[in-house]
């Protein structure tokens, strides 16, 4: 691949992921069909079978799906600079929007009507999180061990000041230990 061709690809990656970034409202799994359409159907950058593996992979490493997919696809198509262009592209729309909002938010919230709206929105956020919780329980908790871990994590987070980082590390360790114990039992 010659240099001009690569540069063209990097530029294209930036714009495609900028568009994806501009439409990742709420983020998360809702983005998957949209990313697939751009990457597989429109641009034929990645094969249909491979994108399924990519989505599985990007969900099992740290980070958010849209950004991880961008980095992975960018790297596959045009190396490290492809990954940089895609990552910057996917983050830039929200960076611009949120910066603008953050700059004016304090004065905006001083308007009484806006303050009242946000009082209401806070209650709506609780409903939103509980809805996400219900949707995630089925794919996340498979047995009683799962319920136990979820319960313990919930209690620790509500009752103590222990950082979520330690809680996650302990849960990963618990997952590994329980899995090995189960395997031993089977053997």
């Amino acid at each position: 691949m010659d240099k001009g061709d690569k540069l063209k690809k990097i530029r294209k990656l930036f714009f495609v992921f900028f568009r994806i970034g501009a439409f990742t409202f709420g983020g998360g799994l809702a983005m998957i069909p949209f990313i697939k359409r751009e990457i597989v159907d429109s641009n034929h950058w990645i094969e249909e079978e491979e994108i399924v593996d990519i989505f599985a992979m990007v969900q099992s490493v740290p980070g958010v799906i849209a950004v991880n997919s961008a980095i992975f696809v960018g790297y596959r198509i045009a190396g490290i600079w492809g990954a940089v262009a895609s990552a910057v592209g996917v983050v830039l729309p929200s960076f611009i929007v949120i910066s603008a909002i953050a700059l004016f938010f304090s004065s905006f919230k001083n308007i009484p009507v806006v303050a009242r709206a946000f009082e209401g929105i806070n209650a709506g956020v609780v409903a939103l999180i509980i809805t996400a919780l219900f949707q995630l329980i089925k794919p996340s908790i498979k047995d009683d061990y799962g319920w136990t871990i979820a319960g313990i994590v919930f209690a620790i987070m509500c009752l103590t000041n222990i950082s979520a980082i330690y809680v996650l590390l302990a849960s990963a360790a618990a997952g590994i230990i329980i899995s090995y114990m189960k395997k031993r039992k089977e053997a």
Binding site: L133, L136, I137, P139, S140, I141, Y145, G146, W147, T148, I149, A150, G151, I152, V153, F154, I156, M157, A164, V167, L168, S171, A172, A173, A174, G175, I176, I178
Partner: peptide, 9 residues
């Protein structure tokens, strides 16, 4: 172990 922990979080 992490998936149920996410539910707890």
């Amino acid at each position: 172990g992490l998936r149920p922990a996410v539910i707890g979080l």
